[in-house]
Design a protein around this nucleic acid. Structure first.
Lengths: 246, 246
DNA sequence: CGTTTTCATTGCGCCATGACAAAGAACGCG
DNA sequence: CGCGTTCTTTGTCATGGCGCAATGAAAACG
């Protein structure tokens, strides 16, 4: 297990002393619920802050909690027998994760690591069935999320099977800016620190190749990149690159 | 839409004139139900036979039915903009498929094609919620299946990201014989016709490379292969190949 | 039974990428 | 502020496996 830290203060994330119903009421999983009911759910939640790079749970751990990411970014990672990492998925704030029970598993199928400082709620997994039964729309909305993630994974399989490295990296970048892009003066910036290594683990290549690719793109003005930071200046051109044939 | 044919006779699949409760009662999705309830479910089902290579539904079609594969084998396929096929998944008999509704979708996310002559039941999708609500264990068991498929997809992503072609093909073969292997005199044979092309679409490579690989393996006695047919003689050795480092 | 179609095998050349190596740049820490 | 660490860039080289092309073999067809 990794170490994490009790939340000292939620000040960075909420101006209220205690967690507020409005936090949840906009999220799909809870959108159909009354404020009062949400309050009830919140009372059972554990809230925690995680440092950047902290591990929330590891692949194979007994799945005894499920989580809701309030703020930050989660990286779902798998590690091969010979120590290579593969990033399977990124989870943006507002989504549930670690929902092994929903998939009929009793251990987590992958490791969850924060990509930056994050805040998450969690509930004991035994409440899952409760939630699903009692709260209207919870199950449905959850499975919608599962469906989306399956779709994403599916796309990645197709990508990896048919596309060249350049296109794969372009796709990965596009996904990232869609999911967590932040508009800045000279384009759209990825909202959390990301290294070439990370990008290579998302696309099944090496950090060297990613570095070369970014350099090349920077030369033609499609992106600007710095240490742990990437800004996409010309998203449209990136779309072209992501679908270009050899 | 592809063409399919009304089932003329279920004789090949069942000795009873009409569908029998025992057909379903062993399947996970229905395992917890009384025979009488199963009868009720069966009465609402449509039963159909499909020729080998027939298309059950296509990616993007309105998802108006969900299916249960009674006999045969289904290949879940996606097609890229430039016409390349990628085989995302194989579904063995006894499993549900086309369960878009369970994933919050209203169109099918991929195309389903029979790998050999097959028999499937189907129900109108509007019964889904009914089934989930009324039949104990149906939803749970279904999501277990979804979870398994996600796990498989996840593994494939890791494979494609980290392994070489030889290892990927070995993995694919192992999956196939696990899922639908048939013991024969000189090893384990894949239970439905499969071409090098198919195998290449499962592993993201070309039929040429697959052919070469099989030839090489045949030379050392790991497999025997013929037209549309592959027999694994030495599964253990194949496991070694599937994990060997360069 | 001959013809056509589908599927499989194999050789050859090339190129995208991985492997290795070394140096530079930004950051964090005492 | 200097030092170690982490991250990035760039060069050179080797090669896996893809593209292309031609042949062969088995099934399907009529």
């Amino acid at each position: 297990m990794c170490d994490f830290h009790e939340m000292k203060s939620a000040a960075r994330f909420s101006s209220h002393a205690r967690l507020d119903e409005s936090l949840l009421s906009e999220l799909p999983a809870f959108s159909k619920l009354e404020n009062q009911v949400i309050g009830e759910i919140l009372e059972q939640a554990i809230s925690r802050r995680y440092d950047a790079g902290a591990c929330v749970f590891e692949e194979g751990d007994r799945a005894d909690h499920f989580y809701l990411l309030l703020d930050g970014y989660i990286r779902v990672v798998r590690i091969t027998p010979d120590g290579e990492q593969v990033i399977a998925l990124h989870i943006p704030s507002g989504q549930l994760f670690g929902i092994a029970k929903a998939l009929g598993r009793d251990t987590y199928p992958a490791t969850a690591i924060t990509a930056k400082e994050s805040l998450a709620l969690s509930w004991p997994m035994r409440l899952w069935d409760d939630f699903a039964a009692r709260y209207d729309g919870f199950a449905t909305e959850t499975y919608k999320t599962v469906g989306q993630r399956m779709g994403e994974m599916n796309n990645r399989i197709v990508e990896m099977a048919t596309q060249q490295v350049e296109q794969r990296i372009a796709c990965a970048l596009l996904r990232l800016i869609n999911q967590s892009g932040r508009k800045v003066s000279d384009g759209i910036e990825i909202n959390f620190p990301i290294t070439r290594q990370d990008l290579s683990e998302m696309t099944g290549t090496t950090l060297h190749t990613v570095s070369r690719m970014l350099s090349a793109w920077e030369k033609v003005g499609v992106v600007k990149s710095g240490r742990k930071k990437i800004t996409v200046c010309d998203p449209h051109q990136l779309v072209v690159l992501s679908t270009a044939k050899p």
